[in-house]
Design a protein around this nucleic acid. Structure first.
Lengths: 227, 227, 227, 227
DNA sequence: CGTTAACCGAGACGGTACGTCTCGTCTTCAG
DNA sequence: CTGAAGACGAGACGTACCGTCTCGGTTAACG
């Protein structure tokens, strides 16, 4: 309305800051040749702290509603102003913060499809930051109807890349003859991902046992029908 | 502080209302012989409207936070007082309201395990009230850390019965020789339930196709490995 | 803008609630015959706590700027809403709260003008609630240019009544022949009030000695000129 | 933390710039023989403008809270940095700025004590810069509890010198036999100063009439008691 | 003429208060 | 007991300043 906000679209949480850029001389993401804007530059520390606090709260509080700007500010040790200077509202902040979870997933190339799948599945349910990702997943999915854009972006940038890793392994398996030639890859994906996500959230059933990933993969590989 | 609340523990949403009870004159479940409490009896219409509104909101708003007593009252056409007289707080209301989703699931006994599984799966993702149940599932799971009791009760009273139906079918299949004798029933359960729940929530991928249930069951039956 | 505020102009801090009204049947300041408005009535406890907190803060913080609605709410143990329901903004609140300091000042009728004046003066600088009044006086006068209405009302309702008491005593003294027949009453008023107010604020000079009032009155009575 | 501030303690607002010093070549108060510090010297224009703006704001806004560094900078046509380089915080600035009001008060030596007192009193309430002084007086006294140091210093450096002038005149009067030999000088001081200060602030009573000073002095001289 | 440092402008920082809003709870009324 | 109405305390919202701090670019004096 009468704001000088949105100086530049935050360019936040760059993840892999890209190539071996010579940080310092040319510094943060401004198009080459553009003059540094006047005034004190925005603090990268604040950027990071805000995004991290947001993600943590989203994971812990279990829902977009549990993430209040005030809580984010308090947890990040930052003034509310500093947040509003960068994002116009809560939803925008969360959408951007999700990018912090993008970090690429290394596709393991092991001896066999089975081993690869188990390794990936293992990571999903045991790895520390993947655990936070999973909490965010449930938080966002729970409120999906209210924040469709949020879900869309999270799906596109975080979920799909992970599904892609498995998809690739499955396709490789088909090509290599390890998997059935008429395999319905997408259905298999739903099966394996669904089992992992759901089991990880089923607190009542206790922590996920170490061999759960292997059991899931094996059951899926051999099928349940008698032969 | 100075309340006469909690006259009886609500005895709400009786599920299958049972028998041909003469609604009106003698009404709700008081043990025979117990004297009717003095004063105007509580309205069963209100009870039902409140519970239904609660469940609807939980499904639609996607989260416990989205269910406000205010909204429930408005949607049920009821005063906030009327709700407050029956339940001490929001969580109690939701916990009780979930009982409305308990309605037993008929285990089909068809020609084969495969057909039974497909029928059950079909119901999960296509049936109207099962859809609402699924929405509630995601809403509750999303905020599970904040309301563990809620999740526990929902799991116990709504989820488990449904898992039990499948569990029974699987066991029958093993006994009948249709399924592998060494079948890991629990793992198979996670696979099938996870796939259905997750696919139903993946709005981006479009509505669940009619043959999805069959594809899931078949994939799981035959396995994905080449033979 | 879109408010239902200002149901009735607060009718706050009634001071002497007037006559021996039969509190209970007809209760708080609503014109006879007017129906009680629906809904929960406003809390008189809150009214009082807010006004008292406001006056205290004004006296302690030394200035209108030091009185923040949030501080008032916190000190009164009241939600901000409860304040805003009654007054549209800070200035209105303070203006109204000043009425709490109105409480009439009893004009003593002693043996002589001198004794009366000393008694009054004594009260001004030693009495507890008159001390608070004096603090408010300085707070308001300090910011007089910014809040002229505040000063005007405070002068009219709190200061002038007190000046009137002295004025009356002085006039009585003239009539009785105790004071000079050509006495300039107003100038004498400025002298006595000014001395008291200023001395009370001069922290550096230590607390006001007990005989200060007497010394002031005597000096003024006899004059400083040699005779 | 990493500041080079406080190069020299401001040495600001020299008041009577002292003698007919050859401003320009050797300029402001550095001890003779001390080498001029390197770099661009601080602007005296800025010094003066800042101090003046501060005093003006204090007088106009009626309170320490009304003096914001931002407003001072704007009014002085100076960057906030420039202020911050000289004073560590707002209170220090105001304390220093008050020195600008120190300017000595010439004690008139007229025909009689009465005439001297009237002349001084006249100056207090009519003189232009003394008016500003008076406004500052009220501003500071209003917030005295919050900024005791401010009040202490203002009292010591601005108020007391003025009281001293009157004190001297009164003492001279006693010695000369014009005033009562047993005169309580301090009490007389409170009376005369209080009357002037208070009347000057009483906007409601209109501007101070020209003969007010004379009326006050006369009333005090002759006393109010009949004889 | 180059070094040095103060200058000004601009804007980000953490903080506090604003006035508005919605929520869960509580209280009173009329029926 | 019911519904309506509305007050209560709590606390988040997004805005506006404040005092402080940190930059870039400029300007004045010294060597």
């Amino acid at each position: 309305m009468s704001q000088t906000r949105e100086r530049l679209p935050a360019q936040v949480a760059a993840g892999s800051p890209g190539a071996g850029g010579s940080e310092g001389s040319m510094s943060s993401g401004r198009p080459a040749g553009a003059a540094r804007p006047p005034g004190r530059p925005r603090s990268e520390r604040a950027d990071k702290a805000i995004v991290e606090a947001t993600v943590d709260l989203l994971a812990e509080e279990g829902g977009v509603a549990g993430v209040s700007i005030e809580a984010v500010a308090a947890r990040a040790g930052v003034g509310k102003t500093t947040i509003y200077r960068r994002w116009p509202n809560k939803e925008a902040l969360i959408i951007d913060a999700l990018a912090a979870l993008k970090e690429p997933f290394p596709a393991p190339v092991g001896a066999s499809v089975r081993e690869d799948l188990i390794a990936i599945a293992q990571a999903f349910v045991s790895n520390k930051t993947d655990k936070k990702r999973l909490d965010c997943y449930w938080s966002i999915m729970g409120g999906a109807e209210r924040y469709p854009e949020l879900m869309a972006r999270f799906t596109r940038e975080v979920i799909e890349p992970r599904r892609d890793v498995i998809r690739t392994v499955l396709r490789r398996g088909v090509t290599a003859g390890e998997l059935r030639p008429d395999l319905d890859v997408e259905t298999a994906l739903w099966l394996i991902m669904g089992a992992l996500a759901q089991r990880a959230r089923a607190f009542g059933a206790g922590p996920v046992p170490d061999d759960f990933a292997a059991r899931v993969v094996d059951a899926l590989m051999t099928g349940i029908a008698a032969r």
